[in-house]
Design a protein around this nucleic acid. Structure first.
Length: 235
DNA sequence: CGCCAGGGCCTCA
DNA sequence: TGAGGCCATGGC
């Protein structure tokens, strides 16, 4: 059985190695994911924020196409997104799915950024910024935490469907609700944005490679620690 | 060729 | 306050 969330992090980390999230698209030039970035440029920061909205319940591959299309139309810029008609924007981000809804969300978020520029948001205390983000249409807990952690480097733990599923299976109990599970990570771990960043990325890697909806427990690295993997007749 | 993606909003009990 | 419907494209 896993002793705690620190041990789980160490296991995942030694299994999958450094993840180097958030995956900033290269738009042509190859940027190794492991490359240490001093700090994201404003453009990259905005791209992460847009990506956080586009990836809602959507495979990242589909989001990449949409981000590339936005780049081609020079729309990775809040001023330009604020101006473009919603229907036009929707057609450009079509590949990301739910494009009509997401176009509305992006436009509202772009306008939000014009009223609250990135340098101002960066200076806000994490809880205040989190509340402000959550107050925006289309930004729920996961999107807000992704933005906080990956675009603003603020120490908050991102919970997603993968995290819920992995923890539920490991512990052999039902999935926890967002805030309850987040609080477990937040109170157990030291508030280190770098660790939170890697930890969430490792959950994604593990969920994709083994802990899928239909799990591949055969050679799962966590099998011996997992209530589900060890279960009778357990895969 | 079905299944399912790094959710969130709205409605209704 | 929790469950269920709705939104949609494309990769595997």
């Amino acid at each position: 059985m896993l002793h705690n969330l620190e041990t789980l992090f160490d296991n995942l980390r030694s299994t999958y190695g450094p993840q180097g999230w958030w995956p900033v698209t290269d738009h042509g030039e190859h940027i190794p994911t492991y490359r240490k970035r001093e700090k994201f440029s404003r453009a990259q920061q905005f791209e992460i924020l847009v990506g956080a909205i586009l990836t809602q319940s959507t495979a990242w591959k589909n989001v990449e196409h949409a981000l590339n299309a936005l780049h081609d139309h020079q729309l990775l810029d809040p001023v330009r997104i604020a101006k473009i008609p919603t229907a036009t924007l929707a057609s450009i981000i079509r590949s990301a799915g739910y494009h009509n809804q997401k176009a509305v969300k992006l436009k509202q978020f772009a306008k939000f950024l014009l009223a609250h520029p990135l340098p101002k948001l960066e200076r806000m205390p994490i809880e205040e910024l989190r509340a402000l983000l959550l107050a925006q249409h289309g930004i729920g807990p996961e999107t807000a935490d992704s933005m906080l952690l990956y675009a603003f480097a603020k120490p908050t733990f991102v919970i997603d469907a993968y995290t819920r599923r992995i923890i539920a299976r490991l512990e052999g109990r039902p999935e926890e609700r967002y805030e309850a599970l987040r609080q477990r990570f937040m109170t157990t771990l030291r508030p280190d944005a770098g660790v939170f960043n890697e930890y969430h990325a490792l959950f994604v890697a593990h969920a994709k490679q083994h802990c899928r909806v239909r799990p591949l427990c055969e050679d799962c690295p966590l099998r011996s620690d997992c209530a589900y993997g060890r279960a009778p007749k357990g895969r």
